[in-house]
Amino acid sequence: MTQPSSLAASAPLLSLQEVGKTFTMHLRGGVRLPVVNNVELELHPGECAVLAGPSGIGKSSILRMVYGNYSVDHGRILIRNRENGQLEDIASGDPRTILESRRHTIAYVSQFLRAIPRVSAIEVVAEPLRAAGWERDAARQRAQDLLQRLNLPSALFDLPPATFSGGEKQRVNIARGFATDHPLLLLDEPTASLDAHNREVVVEMIEEKLRCGTAILGIFHDETVRDRVATRTIDVSGFSAREAA
């Protein structure tokens, strides 16, 4: 079950092989919208690979496929299970495999926070920690530390984020994604609606994650942020299925 540590260190955490996806819109007469084709990429611990290319080229769709939020039509998305070192295929779409990988392996900061009625900001952030097995108090403490670090006013901690501003919601979302120490972190424009000061905090948090060996796959339209954190850029236009359509 356990691999030799040297092999484990060099083996990729995430590997996309010949990944392709097309949307079929049945309500529009079955029109097919190809998204990406033949996506190939590997991600190793401590790397921050940035997906680049114009809007609509399929960058967010790639992140969503890795998170299991979008299905995959072709190819494989292999993720190394942190418990047993085995590779699991997210592209299979098996709900239990995906849920398990979210609990322990993949964290995701989506572009927009989906607020849940009556659930406070601190609970939103603590939730992935609770799911990973943390005690309630420790999870809440860690959530609070993160929200403080991201300069969210403490008066907001116990309020549901539904009424927060865009920047406040985003910081709650970032805190949620960064709360656990999952080995793989997906970031979809985490700094898009932040001011310069908070953007800097996020950059520092990303750098810390990388030093701890977290592998990051991200989308950053902000060039200064991208230049600071990227260890590698992947041009998604090469995988785009749009021209072929």
Binding site: H26, R64, N69
Partner: peptide, 21 residues
């Protein structure tokens, strides 16, 4: 059938697409 957020965000069957839409 599938993961809840997958079915709601990327519905495949015409009927699921209709429900979500």
């Amino acid at each position: 059938s599938g993961l809840t957020d997958r079915v709601l965000d990327d519905p495949h069957h015409p009927y699921s697409q209709l429900l979500v839409a």
